[in-house]
Amino acid sequence: MTDLTPITALGAAAPRVETFGALQIEENAGLALASLALRKGGNTPAPFGLTLPDVASAVSNGEIGAFWTGRGQWMVEAAGKSETDFAALLKAEAPECIVTEQTDGFVAFEVVSTQGGAPIEALMSKLLNIDPKTFGAGQAVRTGLEHMTVFLIRRSDEKLAVIGMRTLAGSLWHALAVAARRLED
């Protein structure tokens, strides 16, 4: 183990978490990410036993999940695995594929509602030009949020993951927090 100490995307020792009425936003610093792309003409693998999802969808077996990012491309995610060489683990599962370490490329914010899906959808309507009614559990897209590119995963009715570029973590948190705070009234 290295003796260097990492910091979170928001620049602190510990992940940031804050509650705004029915919504909680938490920085998911433990999330490991690696992208997986098929080689030309390659077969679709089933890493960690996952059936890689179709267009605009996400799957998860509880520990490891995957979401579609483009034709023949997925992002594979593993909770609490950011300190492992997750790309190497994935590569072992899908040796024919192109695997790229992405854990540090992104910041993940998990938005959780304590009052069902409505607060999540209200938050979405302030930030994202995505119809929440067509973006139910298991859906995943990439879109723009305040000029930033983000992946959105509707993990469940009450849970929305917003995964943005790591260097924009501060701006992304600001956008989410301001919108969530305004919904408190």
């Binding site: 080689r39 030309k40 003409g41 992405q102 540090d104 490329g105 570029m165 790591r166």
Partner: peptide, 15 residues
């Protein structure tokens, strides 16, 4: 498009 190549930005991933 016939070339076997994949492009992935890793600007943010590496300090």
């Amino acid at each position: 498009p016939e070339l076997d190549v994949q492009l992935i930005s890793t600007t943010d991933a590496w300090a």
